[in-house]
Nucleic acid binder design. Structure first.
Lengths: 230, 230
DNA sequence: ATAAAAGATTAGCCTAGACAAATAAAAAAG
DNA sequence: CTTTTTTATTTGTCTAGGCTAATCTTTTAT
C-alpha cells in the first residue's frame, strides 16, 4: 500500500532518475553507467527504467543508451530539486541540523512531503532563494537562474573569487570544508598551483592553506573580476 | 529502490498494520474484516500479512484469524504512534496547518522521517505531551500514560466533563466540531438525552446545542466528579 | 585490422504487497 | 438440525523495481 499525498505523478524511483539526469547534465547525454553509479543501481536497471521514461516522454535516448531530459522531464526534475533544496534549508535553518548531514534526509523526504506541507515550510522560511550548500532554489514554476561557476581547482594563479556552491554528498568531506572556512560566501584567492594541478595554495577569508586537489573538488567559485586581471 | 533513513526495521506496510491493530485494540483480538476496513485493503491481503506478522512474532493469531499485538508488536506500534503524533503536533504548531487536515500528511511522513529529524522536531516543540487532537504522545521508550475517557454520547444526563480526545480522520466532521467548540480542553455538560440516545442536548463551554448522535461519535470526555453526583 | 576491454542489453528471476474469484468454515436464522 | 449468511482462506495474478549471468556492441589498443 503506497500512499501518495504528495500529488506526485511520478513514482519515487522515476523522481530519482530525472533528478539524477538533471544533476549529471553537462551538455551531453548522460551514459547509462554514470547514471547507474550515481543512483547506486545496476546498469540493466538503468537501461530498463530509461526505456520506460522514454516511453513516457520524460527522457530522450541517444547514442548507446545515453539519455537527456526532455522538456517535461526537466520540469519534473526541477520540481524535485525545488523540494529537495527547500527541505535542506528547512532542516538546517529551522531544525538546526548540520549542513553536512541533511542531504540524505532531504533525499527521502523530497518524495513524501505534500505540496501543502512544502508550501508551509517555504512560507515559514520566507521563501529562501538558496539551500545551505549555496544551490539556488527553483521557484514554483521551475524557473532557476543560471549562473556560471568554476571549480576551485581550476582557478588561475592570482585569481580571486567567492565560494558559491558546495557539491558533495560526503559528510566527512563537508565537515572538513566547514572547518577550513570553505562555505558559501567565503572569499578565496588562488595563490599558486604546484605539481601540475596536484597541490594548491589557497587563501580562504584571509587565511592561507596548502592542500591537495582532491580536497577541493566540489567547491565552486564565482570569479571576481577584481584581481583576476591585473 | 526504497531508501530507508528512518532506521525502520519494519516496512511501511507492516508499520501500518501494527498501528491499525493498536488503534483498533479494545481488549479483544481484532477481526480480519475490521482491519481490512480500517486499512482500506482487501481481506485476503490482511490474512496474508497477518500470517507474516505472526511469523515475525509481532502479532498473535486467535480464533478465526483475529489478531492482537504481541509485546514486540506493541513496541513497534508505539514507535509509529509516537512519530505520528509528534508530526501532527509539528504540522499544526510549527507549520500552522489546520487541525483537520494534518492527519494524512502525518500518516505518510511517519514512515519517512529519520530519528534525527524526529528528535529535532520534538526538541523544537520542547517535547510536547499531546498532539492537536488531544492524544497523548508516547515517550521515546514507548511509555504511554493510560487514561479513562468516555464517549461524549455515553455521558449520563446532568454529567459534566472535559473534552480530551477527538478521534476522527474525516476532515469535514472535524471542522464542524471545531466550529462547535468541541476541541480538547473544552468543558461540556450533558443536559438531556432523547429518543433512546439519538438526540442530545449538550452544553459546550457554556453554549447549549442540540445534535444527533452521529455528530458526537469520536469525541471523548474525561468525566468531572463535580456535578455527576449531586 | 584484429584482439581486448568497456559498456549496454537481453533474458530470466526475485520480493513486497496488493487484488479477484473460488472455496471453506462458522454463526445465525429458520 | 438444516439452511443461509457472514467471514476467512486459498489460489493464482499483477505491478513496480530491483538483480545476476550471459550476450551483444562499441571503442580502444596493439
Amino acid at each position: 500500500m503506497v500512499k501518495r499525498v504528495a500529488a506526485a505523478a511520478l513514482t519515487d524511483s522515476r523522481q530519482d532518475y530525472v533528478k539524477a539526469l538533471f544533476d549529471l547534465d553537462s551538455g551531453a547525454p548522460v551514459p547509462v553507467s554514470s547514471l547507474a553509479r550515481h543512483l547506486g543501481v545496476s546498469p540493466p536497471s538503468v537501461t530498463n527504467m530509461l526505456a520506460r521514461l522514454a516511453e513516457e516522454k520524460l527522457v530522450a535516448l541517444h547514442h548507446r543508451g545515453a539519455a537527456r531530459l526532455t522538456h517535461d522531464g526537466e520540469r519534473e526534475a526541477l520540481r524535485v530539486v525545488r523540494r529537495h533544496r527547500i527541505l535542506e534549508a528547512f532542516l538546517v535553518r529551522v531544525l538546526g541540523l548540520d549542513w553536512s548531514v541533511v542531504h540524505e534526509d532531504a533525499e527521502v523526504l523530497e518524495h513524501h512531503v505534500s505540496d501543502r506541507v512544502l508550501d508551509a515550510i517555504d512560507r515559514l522560511m520566507e521563501h529562501p532563494s538558496e539551500d545551505p550548500h549555496g544551490h539556488l532554489i527553483p521557484d514554483r514554476f521551475g524557473r532557476l537562474p543560471r549562473r556560471v561557476l568554476i571549480p576551485l581547482g581550476e582557478m588561475a594563479e592570482g585569481a580571486r573569487g567567492v565560494v558559491r556552491e558546495i557539491h558533495d554528498r560526503d559528510a566527512r568531506r563537508m565537515q572538513r570544508w566547514k572547518r577550513a572556512g570553505l562555505v558559501p560566501g567565503a572569499k578565496v584567492r588562488m595563490h599558486a598551483v604546484h605539481d601540475d594541478g596536484e597541490v594548491f595554495e589557497v587563501e580562504v577569508e584571509g587565511h592561507r592553506m596548502v592542500t591537495g586537489g582532491g580536497t577541493l573538488e566540489g567547491v565552486f567559485i564565482e570569479a571576481s573580476n577584481t584581481g583576476a586581471r591585473r
